[in-house]
């Protein structure tokens, strides 16, 4: 297996985004991203602040993965989706607690924390945000 895949620091340094949806907001144009960027992709400003992004949003587009990469085969079929958070931030996430045929564009979803990539029986369990259909 590829060493990059099991890198502990590579996951650890992303924890603010993966655990808490900490992203960036441009102080000049208001554009928000996950993860935060050093340069605003919209206006080019370097004046970026860290913010907690909203934990709810809706599915904009999605795909059902049957042919998974190594390390994700146990989860197939699973759904990955483009999600627009309540403040308009677009992120890419796996969906959970949902059957592929239940997913719809426009579906309201909320963030949960789940196991995402597990490095075998002895390695790191990498947890991160996933989204599920809202409970209420």
């Amino acid at each position: 297996m590829w060493a990059y895949w099991q890198s502990v620091p590579a996951h650890w340094r992303e924890l603010p985004a993966r655990y808490r949806l900490e992203g960036g907001k441009c102080r000049d144009c208001g554009h928000t991203t996950l993860p935060d960027e050093m340069v605003c992709p919209v206006c080019g400003s370097k004046n970026i602040e860290r913010i907690n992004l909203p934990r709810r949003g809706k599915v904009v587009n999605y795909s059902v993965i049957w042919n998974a990469p190594r390390g994700y085969e146990y989860y197939t079929p699973y759904v990955v989706a483009l999600i627009e958070l309540e403040d308009g931030t677009r992120i890419f996430s796996q969906l959970t607690d949902v059957h592929p045929d239940e997913v719809r564009e426009g579906m309201e979803v909320e963030m949960v924390l789940r196991k995402t990539r597990v490095s075998g029986e002895s390695g790191l369990i990498a947890y991160s945000y996933k989204f599920r259909p809202v409970m209420d």
Binding site: S63, P69, V80
Partner: peptide, 15 residues
């Protein structure tokens, strides 16, 4: 994007 597309389980084909 390895950290924010592939890590959550995305594949080139899914994109």
């Amino acid at each position: 994007d390895s950290e924010y597309e592939a890590f959550p389980g995305g594949t080139l084909d899914s994109i």
